[in-house]
Design a protein around this nucleic acid. Sequence first.
DNA 1: CCGTATCCGATCCGATACTG
DNA 2: CAGTATCGGATCGGATACGG
Lengths: 127, 127
Amino acid sequence: MLKETPTPECLDFTKACPSRLLFDQIGDKWSMMVLTVLDSGPMRFNAIKRRLEGVTQKALTQCLRRLERNGLVQRRVIPVSPVAVEYSITPLGRSLQIPFKALYDWMLVHLDEVESARNEFDHRLQG
Amino acid sequence: MLKETPTPECLDFTKACPSRLLFDQIGDKWSMMVLTVLDSGPMRFNAIKRRLEGVTQKALTQCLRRLERNGLVQRRVIPVSPVAVEYSITPLGRSLQIPFKALYDWMLVHLDEVESARNEFDHRLQG
DNA sequence: CCGTATCCGATCCGATACTG
DNA sequence: CAGTATCGGATCGGATACGG
């Protein structure tokens, strides 16, 4: 399975860039909000669902599975009837909140700039 | 256009969460790598394309347009023949690199943990 | 309550062809 | 060189129905 060797100035961002391995998993619509919700404490499935207005059961299930698979969330089945399932954030997931909050804060600070850039761009297309 | 009022404990993350307005725009496959590449200096279209192995012309064009629209990248047409187009990172785009690098560094530090969590999860499904 | 299974339309994405 | 236009397959995402 020989691979072509990229030239030195042609870094293979596709496969080598570690950020891909993260962004692919948590850059989706709900992951970060789920982690934020769980950061306040363990919560059951439908409780999370109620906090994320607009999420469907399917989407939330897939999201929680992926977070669990990546070690960011823990799933615990409580054997009562009907069954209860409690989700909680792991230490790994909690540590991710730090860099994510930096991104979140950047957005709060620069949202106005971004929006005016969008308006200007969209206006140039019309004018 | 009256909206239903969410209960206090039911925050409307869908529409109110500012992180969505950012993640939707730069959480895609190539945006962050484009910004990283441009962080080293202005570059022409095909030069960027060569640095990002695997990107198609269509994907790169769309990505650069979106970054330009959000004020993170500037596009400059140089009127020679055949036409040359130079892309450069804006101060706004450069400032985004700071929180992004925090996320990138988190990944470098915790990649092993994430991967072993994945292996364990995938193995539980089989076993 | 907490899912899984299925269907189906919308959307993405790459490949290809063409243009100034 | 730097795009635009178009097409078809793959994938996403919601709605619905059903099961432990």
